[in-house]
């Protein structure tokens, strides 16, 4: 894939730096309340915490978004939609998992409908622990993610591409069918 459109003008390394700088300052978030953590998203979006300061705005469709927040527990039915949305997003894309539930199931550790660990199915760039994380924690996570992007550490989308077979295999253990 041709990554640098202007190879002769900007060296590849510099181009990557510019690209990272741009994408960290303009993270468009997909508007997807996957779980109860979405309850703390309105305060983060609105006047008190105002995430638009960092250029983060909610977007209606996955085609336009760079950042997906998996806000809380993931039911099996939702996982399919999350994967679908994630695959519709365009690289580079980042995932922040929100709350304790995507880490190990949280309070729903014994539920029959909650997948316990999210990074078995899609790559997660950042976890925020806590039930539910406070807006300050969320803002902190955004800053951390921006730092990671800057340093080239947030590369879950590359992992997904690299280990696509493994991710797909894990997903297909949960889904009985995958409509395309």
């Amino acid at each position: 894939m041709n990554e640098n459109p202007l190879p002769s003008v900007i060296p590849d390394k510099e181009w990557k730096k510019i690209q990272r700088m741009l994408s960290k300052r303009s993270l468009w978030m997909i508007h997807f309340c996957t779980g109860c953590g979405a309850m703390e998203m309105p305060p983060v979006m609105t006047s008190r915490y105002d995430m638009e300061r960092f250029g983060i705005i909610p977007m209606a469709t996955p085609r336009q978004a760079d950042l997906m927040l998996v806000t809380g527990y993931v039911a099996t039915k939702t996982l399919k939609r999350i994967v679908r949305v994630y695959e519709q997003m365009q690289d580079p894309k980042y995932v922040i998992a929100f709350g304790s539930c995507p880490i190990n199931g949280g309070i729903y550790w014994d539920s029959y409908n909650i997948i316990k660990r999210l990074d078995k199915y899609i790559p997660v760039d950042l976890y925020i622990a806590g039930c539910m994380p406070r807006p300050e924690a969320v803002m902190d996570a955004f800053l951390k993610l921006m730092k990671d992007i800057d340093e080239g550490k947030a590369n879950g989308w590359m992992r997904y591409r690299k280990y696509y077979d493994q991710y797909k295999r894990n997903q297909m253990r949960i889904f009985k069918r995958w409509d395309e």
């Binding site: 997948i115 660990r117 493994q166 991710y167 894990n170 253990r173 949960i174």
Partner: peptide, 8 residues
């Protein structure tokens, strides 16, 4: 169902 899924 869930815990038998291997890690990446």
């Amino acid at each position: 169902k869930y815990e038998s899924v291997p890690l990446i």
